[in-house]
Design a protein around this nucleic acid. Sequence first.
DNA 1: GCGGACTGCTTACCT
DNA 2: ACAGGTAAGCAGTCCGCG
Length: 888
Amino acid sequence: MKRRLDEFFPAPETVEKREELPPLQKSSSGENKPRFPKLLAPKNLPTSHFVSATYDGHKGLVCIKLYEPKSERIFLWYDITGHMPYCLTNLPISELKKIDRLISHPRLDHFETIQKYNPLQDRQVTLTKVVGKDPLAIGGRARGCIRDIIPEEYPKIGHTEKKVKVWEAAIKYYQCYIYDEQLDPGMTYKIEDGKLIEVKHESSERVVREICGLFQEEPEEYLQNVEMWARLLEYPAPRFRRVALDIEVFSPIPTRVPDPQEAAHPVICASLLGSDGKNRVLLLRRRGVKEGIGKLPSETNIEYYDSEGKLILEIFKALQDYPFTITFNGDDFDLKYLWHRARKLGLGIRQNPVEVRRRVCLLKNSIHIDLYKFFYNRSIQIYAFNQKYRDVTLDTVGRAILGLEKIELEKSISELSYMELAEYCFKDAEITLKLTMFDDDLVMKLILALTRISRMPIEDVSRQGVSRWIRNFLYYEHRRRNTLIPDKEDILAVKGATATKAIIKGKKYKGATVVEPVPGVHFNVKVMDFASLYPSIIKVHNLGYPSIRCTHTECRDNNVPDTPHWICKKRRALESLLIGALRDLRVRWYKPKSKDETLPNELRSWYNVIQSALKVILNASYGVFGAEAFDLYCPPVAEATASLGRHVISQTISKTRELGIEVLYGDTDSIFLKAPSEDQIRTLAGWSEKELEMELEVDKIYRYSIFSSRKKNYLGVLPDGDIDVKGLTGKKRHIPVFIKGAFDQMEERLGEVKSLTDFDEAKREIRGIVRDRYLRLKQREWGEHPDKLAFHVVLGKALSHYVKTTPQHVKAALVLQKEGYEIKAGDLISFVKVEKEPYVKPVQLASNSEIDVEKYVAYLQSTFDQVLDALGLNFSEIIGLTKLERFM
DNA sequence: GCGGACTGCTTACCT
DNA sequence: ACAGGTAAGCAGTCCGCG
């Protein structure tokens, strides 16, 4: 018997009553009919973008999501090739047949004998491919999967000198499918007669040929890789039709965020903002709530619902309509809450478009992108957005990137009037949507570019870190070359550990060189650096896990300086080839093209996306080899890269001195030169090109720069008066604005200095700036509240984890906690220094009278000392004290 | 019992 | 879950001091 929809969705009154004990409804016959039928791809589908791949457990097939840009819809295509999940083992079939538990495994399909190239042994090996009927049979979580059975059972019944091993069993099945079928996620496909066919593009093919022309001197093997990447990167992005979703949930306790697992309270508001300009705010009617006033764009559709079920169903409809859904923290809140809440209200699983996984929430027939995860990614934060935002909340990211901020609430969500609630909720969805729209859809395009490079579905690439991206494209190339993907243990066993001693305690190997700076003011400074030093080294010196400490005795003389390692001379490592090609494409094509004014804006903007995607990948490409979490972890590769880097910079410094140029400073890949001539620069660059095979170029010119004796601390004035400040305390974001303000004033004044003679006047004014700030401190003139004196320090871990010491920000946080604040890791703690124990106080609770002025004077001094001594100034003299007086 | 020298912890930053 | 190197401030400890 069919049930009517209303039965599944009780009116709000009923919900209130049922809150204590949720109704557990058994699935009914109605549930078997999906309310939202899957959009199966037709037999013939025009050119579409491959955006995602998953495994459909019910059908037992890989499912590919194709975004058709004309209809702006997602279509699902199921595999018809008969591809099956498998793993590899070094036992021959005859031995495998002796393992009863394996043979009797119901989901075992068959065995095949295959040949693979083993990169650790540099030879062909014979292996058995064990094919299963479904991915869980091969490497599922539960005990009793084939991956576990073979090494568990075989030693009991047979024996062999070799260790019994299983390879490639932990690779996600849809990813395995992408590798084997050599599919290109993010690229275009059509369906013809039910078959998936990649669509090539003539216009980008022409550009690809042009790019390859730049690399004619390179070997064929290398050129092929350049061509492969260029083809993936040249084809432009489609328009992504998308909707931003944000929901608000009723909560009886205002300070507590509702638990999405329990989903105990009703969803009272939802905003759906489409990239197509459709704005909707859905509100749940509740007793006693006033209309109120709130600002919303005039074209916004405000809809009231009497039943929460109907409201949720409307959300679900919209999520089905749009091919892409954007949230900020939807994985952990919005979608999770909706799924659980809908279940609680009696909606069947099949009618629920959300798919709740362990750590993520996906959408069955479309794509969910959680921007929180994307912006949280450290590499994205640093290299794509230049540290514009520090902590990752919708408010801070929105402020930093868009200049939009969340609405500040004076009451709790549950106390808002309809319009206040609507305005608040709308704003969040608006920020979320705009985070994908600024700079001509930069974020969407960046995700697409990374999808193509990493060979991963959009859902994965937008959530995972750079080590996964790099691992995936390397795995992909292993399969293309019929190369066995080694275990982490295999690599470690063959290649061993590191040999150099790190300067920092607890680190695995020695890193980069930092040159002792020459203190003082220096005019006409040219900074030269190596473009992508580490990726260049990986390319030029053939670094990679197969090539480092290779098996050949004849390669042992190809030593890495300062280490016991050697590098293969016979075979090119995969990493060297792939990372090298990516580096060259960025440096020689995408970076210059992104600044080429003669190109149309749209193309230039795409090239800018590509160059920043490449930047993100390249910046991590060396570090991953030294990261234990990386599946191709190979510490000697990282160590050799760093060592060669030191070698490169030290040779360059020697050559520079030989040319009679003074080196003022240098860090890792850069050298600061004092007034070098054009000729000297050319000579140096030429020498580097010839002797090191590295591109050394002028990166920056400073009118003048100021160094103290501290490394990683300097100030440089660019020709236009702009200032680079690196590492100085005055620039650090945790210091009080009261001190930062003085520093900014000094910085501004220094920007006006053009020549040595200008300095006298500037110094006089800087004295004034420091003295003024000092006197204001002494006279306690910093404003009505001490907030300008607050330090802002991030709580690195949960309060309970500070067991060794109790730093000041932790002391302040503990006070806050006692006051009833919820304190968690990642929170920014603001505190001031006070006279009484424990000498710190959260700024929220502090008043002017208790401030410890002397502490601030000391901090002001240490901040300015970093610059003053280079200028021939002295803090104590400026504030009018002699040293003698200070001791009295 | 106190203070200076030292080490270790923590955070923010540089490449 | 990319790496190591540097600076700074503070917490905590050790050691000398008749």
